[in-house]
Design a protein around this nucleic acid. Structure first.
Lengths: 195, 195
DNA sequence: ATTTTTATTGATTGAACGTTCAATTAAGGA
DNA sequence: TCCTTAATTGAACGTTCAATCAATAAAAAT
């Protein structure tokens, strides 16, 4: 069945299949077989396109992070550039991201855990994290000192990640998400509304 | 070399060895061999005392959680029962726990990730989490409404977990911890000092 | 129609791992 | 001293999994 010129399409299909498997089975129990079955292809195709399982996993994380970044950029362009609007956009982007759900939260936690021991994943996480903190710092800096903005950014970033972590482990992830987004916003805006 | 009546001692030695291996290699790469080597025993002993690797991992997590609980109880007994004191104790216990270090943060993240797919671990995490939230809610409830206390407890718990998560992934975990403890305290106390 | 190139397959390989259990060792009792 | 019992060992086994690669199939080129 070989059709020429489908490299990008096949890669995307495999990334989707990998994310689906990670969401359902976890990164731990996701195998080359579980991915290739979901993609309707053979096991050998993964090494062919991504050089191995690790390469596909990295590509899948990169895909998620790209999506997160684009989500923020889209939102921010529909607002004025005020500190309040920027902060709401950042938080919304981090919670909205392709339906917050138990499965999405588990996927993130899987990637977080693995990135402790795989430098490629760790690097991607750190780039994304630096971007989040930088965006928050910039927004907060519009209405407080540099040091205060730094602290507020760290607290907000930690609270966002904390709610994601808790959603992955919670018995009731949806309820956790809904209140998480609201509580992060109310915390972050408390710096701004009171000034 | 068999010596009688050493069951509890052996179990503790194996738990220590398991935690050491998890801290260094991660739960993913921790094997029955890596544990038994550190304990100076043979590989079969783990199944003998814990019924298998999974049993030992559960026992190790239980041991960590016990330590965390005792740490809080010790601290709280050295203070008055004021809301402020209780909250400081809770946060300190969660950050001090067995020297905050890169390795300790990685150990927690390893357990968090695995507990998504192992009901035994998940149960332990949820019990511990319920205790943390309950303690925080009780303290906050001394100076605000029930709903406000619930929200404040969730925010504080998320921030604590978020800083732990970020320490495990950070390039500079120690700096993350030091500021994390201070920032969690300052956040939590902002509810109290302003009333 | 034939050849060449590209795409895909899936059986096989070899390594890693958890578990099992017969064998071994030494302590305590007779 | 001999026997029983508790403690411990570690080789063997079966399973799982990622990676490899020769074989195959279809498109493109000739």
């Amino acid at each position: 069945m070989p059709i020429v010129g489908v490299e990008d399409k096949r890669k995307q299909q495999l990334i989707d299949a990998a994310l689906s498997s990670i969401a359902e089975l976890g990164l731990q129990k996701t195998t080359i077989i579980s991915i290739s079955q979901r993609a309707g292809m053979s096991s050998g195709i993964i090494s062919h396109y991504f050089g191995g399982k690790q390469g596909l996993v990295e590509a899948a994380l990169r895909h998620l992070l790209d999506k997160l970044g684009r989500s923020f950029l889209e939102k921010i362009q529909q607002t004025d550039g005020s500190a309040k609007a920027r902060i709401l956009c950042i938080i919304e982007a981090n919670f909205t991201e392709f339906q917050r759900s138990e499965l999405a939260a588990r996927t993130w936690l899987s990637f977080w855990a693995r990135s402790m021991h795989e430098p490629g994943l760790k690097r991607l996480q750190q780039i994304n994290n630096a971007r989040l903190c930088s965006n928050l710092r910039f927004a907060f800096a519009q209405c407080m000192t540099r040091q205060e903005a730094q602290d507020a950014a760290r607290q907000t970033a930690a609270m966002i990640d904390g709610f994601w972590l808790r959603s992955a482990l919670s018995v009731d992830p949806d309820e956790n998400f809904a209140s998480g987004e609201a509580l992060c916003k109310s915390f972050a805006l408390s710096f701004i509304d009171t000034q």
